Amino acid sequence: MKTNMTYVAMAASILALGSATAVTAEECSQRGALDTLYCDANGDLVADTPTDPAKLNDPNTLVFAYTPVEDPAVYADIWEPFIQHLENVTGKDVQFFAVQSNSAEVEAMRSGRLHIAGFSTGPTPFAVNLAGAVPFAIMGADDGGFGYRLQVFTQADSDIQTVADLAGKRVAHTSPTSNSGNQAPRALFPGLGVTPDVDYEVTYSGSHDQSMLGVVAGDYDAAPVASEVVDRMAERGLYDTADVRKIWESDPFPTTSFTVAHDLDPALVAKIHEAFFGFDFAGTTLGDEFDGVSKFIPITYQDQWAVIREIQASNGVQYTPQGLADN
C-alpha cells in the first residue's frame, strides 16, 4: 500500500482541473445543478455513468482520500486496514491521498486524479456538482443509525449560556463550505436569536480541531463544531472536557459521504461497493477511531443530503467553480 501522495502530485491534480474544464460537454437533456461536464438523465441529482465505453475509467491504482484533518499522517495509519481490504477485494493497488483542504479534494476528483473519497457533509454537494462524485455510503451503527450534531461550545467558566448570548462575542466558524462549522449555524442561529456576521464577527479557524482548541485556549469565546470530531479529539486526549461547556446542539445531520468518481467502470464500482459494505470495523484502528461505528451503510445523495441542500440554499450557496474558490 502507498500511504502518501506528494504535494507535487496534489498540485498536478489541481492543474489538471484546467484541462478537465476544457472538455466539450456532451449534449444533455437534463443536468440540474451539475456542472456542464456531467449529465443527470435519470434525475437522481448525481452525474450519470458515461454511456460510451471509451470514456469509462479502470485505473491500475485507485487513489483514496479522506476529509481534511489536522494530522493527515495519523489518518493514513488509521485507514490502513481498510485500504488493505480495498486492495484485496478490488485487486488494485490503492494509494492514500492526504488532502489539505476541501477545495483541493474536490478539484482532485474533478481532474480525474482521485477515484474514491470521503467528503465532509457541507462540501459533499460541491463534490457532486463540480466533480461528478457519486455518494453511496456513510459510516453507521449496527442498527443502521448514523449522523452527527452541530454543537456549540464555550469555556467552562464563560458567561455564555445560550446561542443568543453569542452576540458581541468572538466566535470561530471552521470554513465557508462546512455544514456544522458554518452553513448550518448561518441557517439556524437567526431563529435562536443571533445572526452570524451581524450580531457577532465570524472568524474562520480552518477546521473543527482548530475551533475547539481555540475555545480551550481562550482565542475564541465560542465555536460551532461537529460532535463526531470533538468526541474523537476528547478520546485522543487533545483537550480536557472539563475546560469546555456545551450550550446547544442540533438534530442529527449526515456524516462524511463516501463517494466514487462517476466515470469509473461499473464492474469496478461494484467491487468498491463490495469492499465498503463487507468491511468489518471490529478490532481495527478504524473501528477504534470511530466509536460507535460498526459498518458502512448504503445512502443516496438525493435522500440523505436533502436537509443539507436546504440549508445551503437558504444561505445562497451556488455550486459553481467560483463558489468553490470563494469557499
Rank of each mutant, 00 (worst) to 15 (best):
P53F: 06
Q302G: 01
D221M: 03
P135F: 07
Q95L: 12
A187D: 09
N129F: 10
Q161Y: 05
Q183D: 11
T203W: 00
T67W: 04
P59L: 06
G323D: 04
F97M: 04
P50T: 09
A270F: 03
I297H: 05
D265K: 09
G140E: 11
S29F: 00
D219A: 12
R232S: 15
P196H: 06
M5C: 00
R149S: 13
V152Y: 09
H115G: 08
N315Q: 15
A131W: 08
D48E: 15
A156I: 07
G181L: 02
D209V: 11
A11Y: 12
A11L: 12
D280Y: 03
S19E: 15
N60P: 03
A127V: 14
F146V: 06
V128M: 09
A325K: 08
H208Q: 08
M212R: 02
G292N: 10
I272R: 06
Y200Q: 07
D288K: 07
A12Q: 14
T174Q: 08
T49Q: 08
D219N: 12
E26D: 14
V94D: 04
L166C: 05
S158H: 05
A223I: 09
D199C: 10
A98V: 00
Q84Y: 02
A270N: 07
N60R: 11
A104V: 10
V269P: 00
V202M: 13
P81K: 10
A270M: 02
V46P: 01
Q84C: 00
V152F: 06
T174Y: 03
G237F: 05
Q155S: 14
P50S: 12
D303H: 05
L192G: 03
R110Y: 02
R31F: 13
F276N: 04
V106T: 12
F276A: 02
V152L: 12
S250R: 08
N60I: 06
L324H: 04
V8E: 15
I299T: 12
S101F: 04
A131M: 07
I299Y: 04
Q84K: 13
Y220L: 10
I138H: 08
E107P: 00
T121D: 13
